[in-house]
Design a protein around this nucleic acid. Structure first.
Length: 835
DNA sequence: GACCTGCTGCGGTGTG
């Protein structure tokens, strides 16, 4: 028996198969390949890497697997050890992937090839099995792969890898997880070279993405590759659920409960045999919609469900299973269902509110009609009048496949510090070797010698300022000049903090009997007292008590309660979507708009035209208004909310330099409002040639205008965790947010004071500018504004475009009740004016 | 009578 196994390893079974032609092979398998599958088969056999773009469910998994089999058939790849790595961004996808990989093996009778899964979920028994013998193909995550590199035997394990597939590359490309994958691929190339193996063939699989070629170059670090475009794009329909009474449709707001009845009817239309996903943009909105649907149709209890990232894993798995078996009629979800469980029998997809981007909309559409030949359809449910324009714009942009691009982070040194410790912990490294390896990635191709030395010094001695603390002396050179991690404690801590995902510590919410519901931010729970009622996970709960980052709750008798707010990322409207909206407005002005959405919104645009002007790409609309509150300014650059925040602060700062005044700022994706306490005459400031929008001293002014220090301090928290400066505690006993904040802000202060040139501080500033202020877009927006024809209007009342901005600002300042009164009054006044 | 905002993803030790 044992001998047999040895023989099999030495003399691969695959050798016995003759090398057939592609046609012969596929015919023998009774498989009619798609063109792209045949292409990948040939490319992989020839040792070429590449990027394969095709819609989900089109057969991408098979395509790359056939490729590897072709190599195996040619005798290039032998069994006996790890040969193929399949990297997936989501644990939830790993089991299905492994199953899909097994099928062709069975067909070929390659019994000695095994397929395994290794993620954080992999149990001890399976880990032990893998410890004895790694499967030929391993499905894993970027983090688990990184952890494999911390093993001292990783060279033996990984040097023979002949093919790497990176699934959902578009999801990883633009973030630090993708950078971690880049570093891993460079490491595998280097290992193969040292082990005198051919370099692994690398294939990325990607869905909808605007810049496929860039994506491929980042994946392959500019080594040669081929871009294979999969089968025809699937037919996708984007349409809009129109409000029944457009005249009564609110001008502002984002909740969209006004659309409850039409949404209920859409779900009912699908009938009992199909299910609907109702996508919302934020978790609290999902909670509100779930409750509203239940209130509207109490008989749906148990037939509809809620799914978002703060719900407990078990709850979510139950919901996913319900979708898979078709027992659920509807699920209200956030992006948590964008990816994940494939082949859901979803009949209908609704998108409440702005889809924000074309890629995201297409992705969500793809959750329906998930079978060959069927049409995917998504229906946008606008939540206010202006979103009717966005819905129309989304349709044209989606039809034109104007999909957003994503670019990889440049030289994130926190990720590199982590990687350096990882490699030191695993095989150890010599400086020059690892530097060459690291530069063999797109993100670090232009890493300077100085930066590299800084990274080594930082990992080795804690840099300039942390030298006195031994826990920051993580790597050291041994006699042979090889960098290693000499301390077991440090090694242990490092393994526990591998990865680049940083999430805020949150409080666990559970019943007294132990049933977990999910997690809520500490700040929300802190505002509640014992006996207070809130809605979470679709349940009305009463707070019993809190202890150690856990909130104990019980079912409440009351019917309503506060809805938790989670502090999340503010996703701006994409460039593609914003441009599409402006185009719709231009078409409407030219009388070319024929869509039902634009016809409904026409009366509103007529008011905008009468009281002011409609913004276009050529025309910057600037509105000024006087009220009891002060002097208002409304501007509509259509650059997304992040850039608007930057532009508004910049203007406030520049004006404030000359005229002392305090300003309040409100932004949305279309424009911003500045409210000045002083009687500022805004109009001349926008005269041609005015320095207000100048590029000069832009960076300094933007940084000065915002509380840049605080922003970058917050950013630094995440960087410090990725770089391994903050230990997050042992599993199961999380440190509270406050503790983490204290230690990170302490380090931040120390560095600012004693080591101001620390490159991680610099990175924090850079990340604030790029990610929180969208600097590139801000600059582009200013340039466009300077070139635009400025149209100024002195208003006597807020226009349809201004109104949502006023509400946005009031919301920040007032309690809900007062806000309600205020809005009622404003609306009454507007109604009278609009008559 | 109109208000309500802000996504997702992963991983881990030690030993009585």
């Amino acid at each position: 028996m044992q001998r047999e196994a040895q023989d099999a390893a030495a003399k691969p079974v695959v050798r016995q198969l003759a090398l057939p032609s592609a046609d012969g092979w596929f015919a023998a398998q009774r498989y009619r390949p798609f063109e792209f599958q045949r292409a990948v088969w040939e490319h992989v056999a020839a040792g070429r890497s590449g990027l394969l773009h095709a819609t989900t469910g089109a057969g991408k998994t098979y395509a790359v697997w056939f490729g590897l089999l072709n190599r195996a058939l040619a005798g290039v790849v032998r069994s006996g050890g790890l040969r193929m790595l399949w990297i997936t961004p989501m644990r939830a996808l790993s089991a299905d992937t492994a199953r899909a990989l097994k099928a062709p093996l069975a067909e070929l009778g390659l019994d000695d090839w095994h397929v395994g899964v290794r993620t954080g979920d992999t149990d001890a028994a399976e880990r032990a099995r893998q410890g004895r013998r790694l499967p030929e193909a391993l499905v894993t995550t970027p983090e688990s792969l990184s952890l494999l590199f911390t093993r001292s035997d990783c060279d033996d394990l990984l040097a023979g890898v002949q093919m790497v597939v990176v699934d959902e590359w578009h999801e990883l490309l633009g973030n630090k997880r993708g950078v971690q994958v880049q570093l891993a691929l460079a490491r595998l190339r280097a290992m193969a070279a040292r082990g005198v193996h051919p370099a692994p063939v690398v294939w990325g699989l990607s869905a909808t993405l605007g810049n496929l070629r860039d994506a491929m170059h980042v994946l392959l670090a500019h080594h040669d590759g081929v871009l294979v475009q999969g089968r025809i794009d699937k037919a996708i329909v984007v349409d809009t659920l129109l409000p029944a009474e457009p005249g009564r449709f609110p001008w502002g707001g984002h909740l969209g409960i006004k659309m409850l009845d039409p949404v209920v009817r859409e779900i009912e239309k699908v009938g009992k045999n199909g299910s609907t996903i109702v996508f919302t943009n934020v978790r609290s909105q999902a909670e509100v919609w779930y409750q509203a649907l239940l209130d509207a149709r109490p008989s749906w209890a148990g037939l509809i469900a809620l799914h978002h990232g703060s719900l407990d894993k078990e709850v979510r798995e139950w919901v996913e299973a319900g979708l898979k078996t078709g027992t659920l009629r509807a699920v209200v979800a956030t992006s948590s269902l964008d990816l994940g469980v494939d082949f859901l029998p979803v009949e209908r997809v609704l998108q409440i509110g702005s889809p924000k981007g074309v890629a995201r909309l297409l992705q969500r559409a793809g959750r329906s009609g998930h079978a060959p030949g069927r049409v995917s359809r998504v229906t946008i449910v606008p939540t206010n009048a202006l979103e009717l324009i966005e819905a129309a714009a989304a349709q044209t942009a989606a039809a034109a496949r104007a999909v957003e691009s994503r670019s990889a982070p440049r030289k994130p040194l926190d990720v590199l510090v982590q990687h350096v410790v990882t490699v030191a912990l695993g095989s150890g490294f010599h400086e020059g070797d690892l530097l060459a390896e690291v530069r063999d990635t797109a993100s670090y191709a232009d890493l300077t010698d100085a930066e590299w030395q800084w990274v080594l010094d930082f990992a080795g001695r804690g840099g300039e300022s942390l030298r006195a603390y031994p826990e920051y002396h993580r790597i050291a050179r041994d006699e042979s000049g090889c960098w290693r991690v000499p301390d077991a404690q440090i090694a242990r801590r490092h393994k526990m903090s591998v990865g680049t995902i940083v999430s805020e510590a949150a409080m666990l919410v559970k019943y007294a009997n132990g049933g977990k519901i999910g997690t809520i931010e500490e700040s929300f729970i802190a505002r509640l007292s014992k006996g207070d009622v809130f809605t979470f996970g679709g349940k009305i709960l009463e707070l019993v008590r809190t202890q150690d980052m856990t909130a104990i709750v019980q079912p409440a008798r009351r019917k309503t309660g506060a809805v938790p707010r989670w502090m999340g990322t503010k996703l701006p409207l994409s460039v593609e979507m914003a441009d599409a909206v402006l185009r719709e407005l231009e078409d409407a002005l030219a009388g070319r708009a024929t869509s039902p959405e634009m016809r409904l919104v026409e009366p509103l645009l007529a008011i905008q035209r009468r009281w002011s002007s409609v913004p276009t790409r050529q025309r910057l609309v600037v509105e000024a208004m006087r009220s009891r509150e002060g002097r208002h300014l409304f501007v509509y650059p259509f650059a997304g909310r992040l850039a608007h925040m930057g532009i508004a602060s910049l203007i406030a700062y520049r004006v404030g330099q000359r005229t002392p005044a305090t300003f309040s700022i409100a932004v949305n994706d279309y424009g911003f409002e500045l409210l000045a306490s002083a009687d500022i005459n805004w109009i001349p400031l926008f005269a041609p040639g005015s320095a207000l929008l100048s590029d000069e001293r832009l960076l300094d002014d933007v940084l000065a205008s915002l509380n840049a220090g605080e922003l970058s301090g917050r950013r630094f928290r995440e960087i410090a965790r990725v770089a391994g400066l903050i230990f997050q505690g042992f599993p199961g006993q999380p440190k509270s947010v406050r503790q983490l904040q204290a230690s990170s802000s302490l380090i931040y202060e120390v560095l600012r004071k004693y080591d101001p040139t620390n490159l991680l501080l610099n990175q924090a500033d850079r990340e604030v500018l790029e990610q929180e202020l969208d600097l590139g877009r801000l600059r582009a927006a200013l340039a466009r504004m300077r070139a635009q024809k400025v149209v100024l209007h002195e208003l006597s009342r807020p226009t349809p475009f201004a109104f949502p901005l006023m509400i946005e600002r009031l919301r920040e300042a007032l309690t809900t009740e007062k806000l309600q009164d205020r809005i009622a009054r404003m609306v009454a006044e507007l109604e009278r004016a609009a008559q």
